[in-house]
Design a protein around this nucleic acid. Structure first.
Length: 269
DNA sequence: AGTGTCAACATGTCGA
DNA sequence: TCGACATGTTGACACT
């Protein structure tokens, strides 16, 4: 995978630094050491299109998950966590009733009194429709959520959770891509730095082997581009009146070139 | 048994 | 204040 591949994601990438004070989540445990120094690397991403729609789920493992199983919560004695009970209570009344009745396919264990949480697996059709919706908009308004839940025979809360997780996966994937991209940039810069260091050494060696006048600071010397005579800096005394001597400082250094570690960034990202 | 995936949840932040 | 969201975590499940 080349950099071009990386950059054909339809996403915009910006790299820079921002102050820790600008961090919208200063309390995050993931805060870096860099942040503690007042600045931290900032990656700015712009989603120009959904790059990861191919990240299909459900049937990815080659198994059709046509059975929809929900865990029991209605008893209020779920061993999963108090949080789930709390959430169910928060969801409360109407929606909870709708949700319970909407998509539940009871598993065998449902009858044995087990309180273990059962993992819901979305079937192919549900996954496909969710993915399709996600392509259109990665966030849903309440009306869209309700409608989608109705079409999927799922609870609105499940649709909401699916979209949250989907966004998180997309972001994670993009972060991985960005990481690879930055690694390549780092490698390129390291190579370039090595090359420039070598060039500098060569220039230093060359300077030592030059005659005295050529070792003078470049600013004190100038050379007429036409006659190639060397004159003292600031005086232009090498030429007579009316001559066309340039005031450009003479330099033995090869023509500088500027290296761009980010190949064609505007076109790429 | 170890591991990856993913639905579901907890928590903190932000904007209306 | 509340709803929406981002992010990190948990636990069930499938696969090796």
């Amino acid at each position: 995978m080349g950099i071009d591949d990386v950059c054909n994601t339809g996403l915009g990438l910006g790299l820079g630094f921002k102050s820790a004070a600008e961090n919208r989540r200063p309390n995050k445990p993931a805060a870096t050491a860099a942040a503690s120094h007042g600045f931290e690397p900032s990656l700015t991403l712009g989603l120009c299109g959904d790059t990861y729609n191919q990240m299909g789920k459900g049937s990815k493992d080659g198994v059709d998950h046509h059975e929809v199983v929900l865990y029991r919560q209605d008893s209020g004695t779920s061993s999963f966590s108090n949080g789930s009970v709390k959430r169910e209570r928060e969801v409360g009344s109407e929606e909870a009733e709708i949700e319970r009745g909407s998509c539940r396919v009871v598993s065998d264990e449902d009858d044995d009194g087990s309180n273990a949480r059962k993992k819901l697996r979305l079937n192919k059709d549900q996954s496909a429709l969710l993915e399709e919706s996600f392509k259109l908009h990665s966030t849903l308004n309440p009306k869209q959520k309700q409608e989608l839940a109705r079409r999927l025979n799922l609870r609105p809360r499940q649709v909401e959770v699916w979209f949250q997780n989907r966004r998180a996966r997309t972001k994670l994937k993009q972060t991985e891509v960005d990481c690879e991209f930055l690694k390549k940039c780092c490698e390129t810069l390291t190579d370039e730095n090595r090359r420039l260091q070598k060039e500098l050494q060569e220039l230093k060696a060359l300077k030592l082997s030059q005659p005295f006048y050529m070792q003078l600071p470049a600013a004190t010397l100038s050379m007429c581009p036409s006659c190639e005579r060397i004159g003292g800096g600031g005086g232009n005394r090498a030429g007579g009146a009316g001559d066309n001597h340039s005031k450009s400082p003479f330099s033995m250094a090869p023509k500088p070139h500027f290296f761009n570690p980010f190949p064609n960034p505007s076109a790429a990202c």
